[in-house]
């Protein structure tokens, strides 16, 4: 039988077992590789660290950087930092939530969209900002959201999913 090496085991192999201080770097590496932290990943990390999965999940949910569901094909990063917030990021987030029917960190059922909220992306003078597919959309207005999502949708065929 062909032995398939698991990317998570490969990451864990580089860390000594049962060292609590390695937990966050390990989770970061897994997220980088897999795009999210799966239940399987948490179980494996728990075995490696000799830690209860509850503790790992509790710690990981404390940080905004970790997500527990796979990203959508199109991942939006919406800025809600001070400047963007003052320029109306709140209304934009509300609109996105309405249009997609999901909360930050979640993914739509068809796997097309997901979004996260961050506190600053360094484009404060051009806010509100949305980062999608490597491009920054600047000065976004709530009424633009429908057409933005619509054109994004058109550009992704169902084969991509």
């Amino acid at each position: 039988m062909k032995k398939v090496s698991n990317p998570i085991d490969e990451i864990l192999g580089r860390y000594k077992p049962a060292r609590r201080e390695d937990l966050i770097p390990i989770l970061q590496e897994i997220q980088e590789k897999e795009g999210f932290i799966s239940e399987q990943a948490i179980i494996r990390v728990g075995n490696h660290m000799k830690l209860s999965t509850t503790k790992i999940y509790g710690l990981a949910t404390f940080y905004d950087q970790f997500r527990f569901k796979p990203k959508g094909l199109l991942h939006l990063v919406v800025c809600n930092g001070t400047a963007c917030y003052l320029n109306g990021a709140g209304a934009i987030l509300k609109k996105i939530r309405e249009e997609l029917g999901i909360e930050p960190g979640e993914t739509t059922r068809d796997g097309r969209f997901s979004y996260d909220v961050v506190t600053c992306m360094g484009g404060c003078s051009n806010g509100p900002l949305i980062l999608v597919a490597g491009e920054f959309l600047t000065g976004v207005k709530p009424e633009d959201i429908t057409s933005i999502l619509g054109s994004l949708k058109k550009n992704t065929t169902s084969e991509n999913i």
Partner: peptide
Amino acid sequence: EEIVTVTALDFVNRGQKTHIGTSM
């Protein structure tokens, strides 16, 4: 965690959303 040593409960999330939760 300390007496039963099973650790089935912990704090989940942060700030206003904090609650006592289980694994996943």
